[in-house]
């Protein structure tokens, strides 16, 4: 797709990203000082976030279990895909029944991805509870979904593109706003 050109505006730098993750980790720690806990990331950047959180919570007892979800099979827009989606393996190596799960994603937007991820988790078993951790909540929800832990809240327009970049996946920590160039259309 050769979409319109984008103007990129930095919103959060590396320190702010790190601070956001630290805040989320702190929130989880306060709410769950001990006992079994699992952090499950949604491919791709949700997995990076889950990994960072797991590192920060590694001194907890016990350390959190980790998992990854590919929600492709739970998407509601298969009809619109012209290419075959590459499905990554979903990896939930702990028993889901009775587990406390923190679902992790980089951005919370319409809520549809989270809906799909929750549906998928429930198909693995019956967790005791599912919470949601996001680095950025950018509003514009289409479903009644809210994050339990939020790193940053940003006020955005529906048409904005918010890109989260992580060292592990993109070589730097940053959040940028991509706005279509206002070409005289």
């Amino acid at each position: 797709m050769s979409g319109p050109a984008f103007r990129s505006t930095p919103l959060l730098d590396a320190d702010a990203v790190e601070a956001g993750i630290a805040g989320v980790a702190e929130g989880i720690r306060r709410r769950h000082p001990d006992g079994p806990l699992a952090v499950v990331g949604i491919h791709t950047r949700g997995v990076a976030l889950a990994d960072r959180l797991a590192q920060r919570l590694a001194d907890r007892s016990p350390p959190p279990d980790r998992g990854a979800l590919d929600i492709s099979l739970y998407r509601d827009d298969l009809d619109n895909l012209g290419t075959i989606p590459t499905i990554r393996s979903s990896d939930i190596p702990f028993p889901v029944d009775g587990a406390t799960i923190v679902l992790c994603d980089d951005v919370l937007f319409t809520g549809r991805t989270i809906r799909a991820a929750v549906d998928q988790l429930i198909d693995y078993g019956r967790p005791a509870c599912i919470e949601l951790a996001v680095l950025v909540d950018r509003g514009n929800r289409e479903l009644p979904i809210a994050a339990t832990y939020t790193g940053h809240t940003l006020d955005t327009a529906r048409t904005d593109h918010i890109a989260v970049r992580f060292r592990e996946t993109d070589g730097e920590d940053a959040v940028v706003l991509l706005r279509p160039e206002e070409a005289g259309s």
Binding site: L73, Y74, L78, S89, V96, I122, D123
Partner: peptide, 20 residues
Amino acid sequence: DTARPFKELFTRSVKKVPAL
């Protein structure tokens, strides 16, 4: 390659996905 994640589903309690 796409068949592999489907085979992994068979170990879950719910073996079904809502894809179709």
